[in-house]
Design a protein around this nucleic acid. Structure first.
Lengths: 337, 337
DNA sequence: TCAGATGTTGTTAGCGTTAACAATCAAGTG
DNA sequence: CACTTGATTGTTAACGCTAACAACATCTGA
């Protein structure tokens, strides 16, 4: 259809000639300029159709200074959380008429984030969403006012940029209070890596709930989000007689904990109750089905684009901070003492 | 640093003036043109550094006709397989000096894929990778020779484009033969959705292995990749006395099967052996740890970029077809009869 | 010493689009 | 009827870069 080999693609001037108008009129039609006679408009549209013309967005971007492309920087999009968030971002961005260019970092350090931001800025993105769940990433944002509007997702108090995140502290509270309400004396915790803001927030929520109930907070066991680290924490916990309730900082580690308990003959929820975090699709089918805290990643992605687009289209506003509440999903891994 | 408010970003001409040369010389330095006096080069680089100049890739793309951006079309990047593949693609592309623009489809139908391809073509991508695991997506490729080099991932015999995929048939064989070798009379199968090429390949491998061993192939149970559908298939299987071995088309469904078996008191692997597919990070910690077929998604992503870049940089070559072999990972969910 | 080759730099002309301004024409207004 | 107003269209000039060619200096070898 018009793109046979060797012939160059039609440009605006070709359409103009075909329709017997100037290229500027073609541009006007394409940009929905009001002052074009409807008869002319029709003629132009017919010419466009006939030639199979598609406008060159690169040339357009050069003159308008807007590429209608948004950059996304994320950490390991293989993980469920980042993957879901990026998915939400991508859907929302496309719905808003933006392309999405993605950089997935293997490890998030200050230099890595900085490079990624430079890389995207070079490409001419109009705005950037940084999924910055680690303290180091959030810091990298703090000292980079690079002229491109930026929104941080899960970024804590990330300097001057707007932030969209799930209320991790509330999530930690929710999990802990649920366990306490079932009559458990105290709640143990398997945490995420200490440089992750999410891990920190969950610890804080857990600690706050225990404190408020006047309970002693045991020493948390540190994991790295992987099922294996949960498994190892689980083995430790299984050997302790006084453990009756565990809040694990994500579902994958919770799976490892469950596995360790099964191996050691520790029954869940009869002897120990377990709560996870994330509500990954698998959790419902763990043995036993896992009580967990659901994060609405999709909403986070959508909101981050909303905030960013608002900044792009409405000039420089106030720094926003949008918090999405988490929710408890009660299943069979928790029970009364 | 140089980007204080209100002042416009430096362009090549600014650097040229600063260094006392013509803008073309600056361009030569930036493009590593050989014929530039090293003293001049140094002077230009200093000017670039001093002004904080970054070249405008949009303007460059307009004249070179290359954006150094690759498009990726994928289906639901929330799933582990697509997410891992896209991750591999992104890493490989960046290593090769390309940006990546992603479109994640909610559902893959012909129109959706077509729109996504048009969308990316408009943006001026140099090449496209389509993760096309469904028959409908592969078909959409077949009739779209849009002038942009394209590679299909998991795309079967996708028309004129090159294809990179995991050998699903071999995977199905591997799983089935493993079970037969443990002494099982026959192997049941929980399949993926019938319009997925991967599901089809796994069924074919399973059937071929059974046939080769002279065994009767039971009627496969159809799932939709979700743990829930596996759970439902598992309940059916649990009620059948003669089932001793099940090959499930992915790990998530296998989790559902395990859950159903646990609920019904069917012990794995004592009474029934179960094999999954994918080797998601969780599988090792299922109860029991799942024997499964590992797909090297990362390699698939890398290879797809290699093939694409080869096409981009070496002119139009032969259509390639690259097949990545799967591997059996034996764990505790399978045992001798 | 001079013709020719080679290295180094500058000048000019696009790439395909939008923005700014000018030009034209019909319709209203006093 | 001259004069403003608004709608419609065309002309010209950017946007920031690379490609092509021209210009000059320098180095060869006879």
């Amino acid at each position: 259809m018009g793109s046979s080999l060797g012939r160059r693609l039609p440009v605006m001037a070709d359409v103009a000639k075909e329709a017997g108008v100037s290229h500027q009129t073609v541009s006007r039609v394409l940009n929905d300029h009001p002052n074009v006679r409807s008869e002319t408009r029709t003629r132009v549209l017919e010419a466009i159709d006939k030639l199979g013309y598609r406008r060159n967005l690169v040339a357009r971007a050069l003159v308008t200074k807007h590429s209608r492309t948004l950059g996304v920087v994320s950490f390991d999009t293989t993980l469920y959380g980042p993957a879901s968030t990026v998915y939400g971002i991508e859907q929302a961005a496309r719905a808003a008429g933006y392309f999405v260019s993605i950089v997935s970092l293997k490890s998030i350090d200050r230099a890595g984030v900085r490079d990624a931001l430079d890389y995207l800025a070079d490409q001419g993105v109009d705005g950037i969403v940084v999924v910055a769940p680690q303290r180091s990433a959030a810091q990298a944002l703090a000292d980079l006012p690079l002229g491109v509007p930026t929104v941080a997702v899960e970024g804590g108090q990330a300097g001057e940029v707007s932030v969209v995140c799930v209320d991790q502290v509330a999530g930690g509270r929710l999990a802990t209070e649920h366990l306490l309400s079932l009559g458990h004396e105290t709640v143990w915790h398997v945490s995420g890596p200490s440089d992750w803001l999410e891990a920190e927030g969950r610890v804080a929520g857990w600690r706050a709930a225990l404190e408020q109930a006047g309970r002693e907070a045991p020493r948390p066991l540190a994991g790295d989000w992987s099922p294996r680290s949960g498994y190892e924490a689980g083995r430790s916990l299984a050997s302790m007689r006084n453990v009756t309730a565990v809040f694990v900082a994500n579902d994958q580690m919770a799976l490892g904990v469950l596995r360790a308990f099964t191996e050691q003959g520790v029954r869940v929820p009869e002897r120990v109750s377990v709560v996870g975090f994330d509500d990954i699709p698998e959790s419902e089918f763990f043995s036993p089905p896992l009580t967990t805290i659901r994060q609405d990643f999709d909403a986070v992605g959508r909101h981050s684009i909303e905030v960013l687009v608002r900044q792009l289209e409405g000039g420089p506003q106030e720094r926003e901070r949008l918090v999405v509440p988490p929710a408890l999903v009660a299943r069979a891994s928790t029970a009364r003492v």
